[in-house]
Design a protein around this nucleic acid. Structure first.
Length: 501
RNA sequence: GGGGCGUUAGCUCAGCUGGUAGAGCAGCGGACUUUUAAUCCGUUUGUCGUGGGUUCGAUCCCCGCACGCCCUACCA
């Protein structure tokens, strides 16, 4: 302890200096950070059980409680004071009167600060204005807070501080707490939904020798003992499919993916994906299942599937619309004729008008997809599945039996954002090997996001993977939708930031 | 990566055409035995993000940099 005193940080301001002085005095009197107070009641439970109880009933049969929490409001008035404690469930008011409490403690309380963590023992009663409160008979300072909280009425609004010091944001902003509690409900609802449908939850590697399962730039790292380059995973797909080969016919994994790409209101370098695979299912089954899963998550978190996002209604309660890439263009950009949309030269010219230079090797399918992204994607406000993605942009998806140029793949859009991506899996080992070879050629031609050839994955497929459907749901974006949050950073507790200035 | 906007007390914010900074909350002292963002009286606190430039003089005008937010690009 004596060494510590020499290393005390220089105080940033007089408020902190004042509080350090108070702490010093508390240390001198005994144990400054006691850990022997055990609360037996939570604010929300007290309100739920006794909001209807009147003082006559409390007098006839006193209700004793021990509560603990952070002091958020404090009103000192001569010999009787009020304080508001906040615990994980909510807030409860304390009535602290010198007639119920020993004089020394009451005097000490007057000098305690907003943000201090207190433990209070007493019995319930209602004040003149009818507020359920604890008449305190014993009061203890459990943890001295050295830093002043943000202003008690306006709270914390600085986005940078909200993200960098989430602990402060959580202390003072009820909406932030509500958002992350909703996120937890979404996650557990999805997990329950999967388990109820006989999926096995698994954990596959985060460190990959070969990045695979998506088209994205990976984070690179190095394993010292093995002296080998490793990649943070960009997707768990190829490992989950190995498990389907192994006989785990229904598996899911809900965890982080890492992609070394730009940041935006919809992109964080690490993000959470729920990816699942079900043998003997196809993309039609996946669409219905994904829809049911998302609906269950919304209802678990919000009590309804009819949501509001950015002031506009989003209806998850009705069956999601299903459109082909061409169908979506025709619906949202009816100026194009079917003949034009199948004319490679026309598509290239049209994309050029939008400032896009299409890849020389791009076929009609991917040109159509590019045009779709330009003219239709952002307009898909209510849930819409887009189906029939071209083979060349879907190297892991099963090709359609009717048209070898397209795959049995869908992407789900809600509020103009991609929420999920799924397909009937490619389980033809020889076709998969050929697709990997095509990706290798693209990589050699300069496509930095093209996939690597994963020989072990091919070997696994050669043992035989049953016909399977698989899908990934972007959990952060889903939580954004369900909590009406404008930025992905609002639904990630500690979002990626640059080093502090 | 490109573009726009922002950064003033611990927090929320004012600060006019350039003359070395203010309010409320928080803090400190005082009054007050049922308050609700308690109230009332008194009072303390600032490298005005950072480095240059223009000027007799810069929080203010100009340039660079840092960080943040938004848009955009790649992507989920």
């Amino acid at each position: 302890m004596s060494e510590q005193e020499d290393n005390l940080p220089v105080d940033e301001n007089h408020v902190i200096a004042e509080r350090r002085e108070k702490l010093k005095a508390i240390r001198a009197q005994g144990i400054a950070f006691p850990n022997d107070f055990k609360p037996d009641a939570l604010a929300a439970n007290i309100h739920a059980a006794h909001s209807g109880t009147e003082n006559e009933a409390f007098e006839a049969k006193p209700v004793h409680v021990k509560v603990a929490g952070r002091m958020m409001l404090k009103r000192v008035m001569g010999k009787a004071s009020f304080a508001t404690l906040q615990d994980k469930s909510g807030r409860i008011q304390l009535f602290i009167g010198s007639s119920n409490l020993d004089e020394a403690t009451y005097e000490a309380f007057k000098h305690w600060d907003l943000g201090d963590i207190l433990g209070a023992t007493g019995h319930l009663f209602k004040t003149k204005t009818g507020e359920l409160s604890v008449k305190v008979t014993e009061l203890r300072l459990l943890t001295k807070s050295l830093r002043p909280l943000p202003e008690k009425f306006h709270g914390l609004t600085d986005q940078e501080v909200k993200y960098r010091q989430r602990y402060v944001d959580l202390i003072v902003n009820e909406e932030t707490r509500a958002t992350f509690m909703a996120r937890s409900k979404v996650v557990s609802a999805i997990r329950n939904f999967m388990i109820q449908n006989e999926f096995l939850e698994v954990e596959t590697p985060m460190l990959h020798p070969i990045p695979g399962g998506a088209s994205a730039k990976p984070f690179m790292t190095h394993h010292n003992a093995l002296d080998m380059q490793m990649f943070m995973r960009i997707a768990p797909e190829l490992y989950l499919k190995r498990l389907v080969v192994g006989g785990f016919e229904r598996v899911f994994e809900m965890n982080r993916n890492f992609r070394n790409e730009g940041l935006s209101v919809r992109h964080n370098p690490e993000f959470t994906m729920m990816e699942f695979y079900a043998a003997y299912t196809d993309y039609h089954w996946l669409m219905t299942f994904t829809e049911d899963c998302i609906r269950a998550a919304a209802i678990a978190a919000r009590g309804t599937a009819t949501l509001s996002y950015d002031g506009k209604e989003v209806d998850l309660s009705k069956p999601f619309e299903r459109l082909t890439v061409i169908g979506a263009i025709q619906k949202h950009a009816p100026e194009f004729t079917l003949a034009q949309l199948n004319d490679e030269d026309f598509l290239r010219k049209e994309l050029k008008k939008h400032g896009l230079e299409a890849n020389k090797h791009a076929g009609v399918g991917s040109l159509q997809l590019s045009l779709f992204e330009e003219v239709a994607e952002a307009k898909l406000w209510n849930p819409t599945y887009i189906i029939d993605y071209p083979v060349e942009v879907s190297p892991l998806a099963r090709a359609s039996d009717k048209n070898p140029e397209i795959t049995e793949r869908f992407e789900l859009f809600i509020t103009g954002r991609e929420m999920a991506n799924g397909f009937s899996e490619l389980n033809d080992a020889e076709d998969q090997a050929a697709r990997f070879n095509a990706q290798m050629k693209a990589k050699e031609a300069g496509d930095t996001e093209a996939m690597y050839y994963d020989a072990d994955f091919i070997r696994a497929l050669e043992y035989g993977m049953p016909p399977t459907g698989g899908c990934g749901i972007g959990i952060d974006r889903l939580v954004m939708l369900i909590t009406d949050s404008p930025s992905i950073r609002d639904v990630i507790l500690f979002p990626h930031m640059r080093a502090e200035a």
